[in-house]
């Protein structure tokens, strides 16, 4: 899939994952890269940007092994933003699916 296109979707993926439960950075990266091929490094600047825009808050949690984990928690503002993005996403994919169906019928 096109790289540029995927990066926009990345934002949506992060928000969706955090809607269910809090995650730490590494966990988010792994969950996403299990499903789609990404440059994992692009996730961290995205997380910082969305935190700055007050879509997330963060908190640190010590773990027995390894470094402390920085957890991301979705705010109400973030939830609202997720709803907007989801609506756009459905509109977009429905449109594309529709076009694909039409195209296939014509052949």
């Amino acid at each position: 899939m096109n790289v540029q296109f995927k990066k926009g979707v990345l934002e949506l993926c992060v928000l969706v994952l955090l809607d269910k439960q809090d995650h730490y950075g590494y966990e988010l990266v792994q969950k996403i890269s299990d499903q789609i091929q990404i440059s994992e490094g692009t996730v961290y600047p995205l997380l910082r940007r969305l935190t700055k825009e007050e879509y997330f808050t963060t908190y640190l949690q010590e773990s027995k092994e390894g470094p402390p984990r920085k957890y991301y928690q979705l705010t109400d503002k973030g939830r609202g933003y997720l709803q907007t993005l989801l609506a756009e996403w459905y509109e977009f994919t429905n449109g594309v699916n529709h076009l694909i169906k039409e195209g296939v019928k014509d052949e």
Partner: peptide
């Protein structure tokens, strides 16, 4: 900003190594 971002990547390496 720079320090915090670098910390994110450093932690990423540590989790991965684990």
């Amino acid at each position: 900003e720079r320090v915090e971002l670098l910390q994110d990547y450093e932690a990423h390496f540590e989790f991965g190594l684990e």
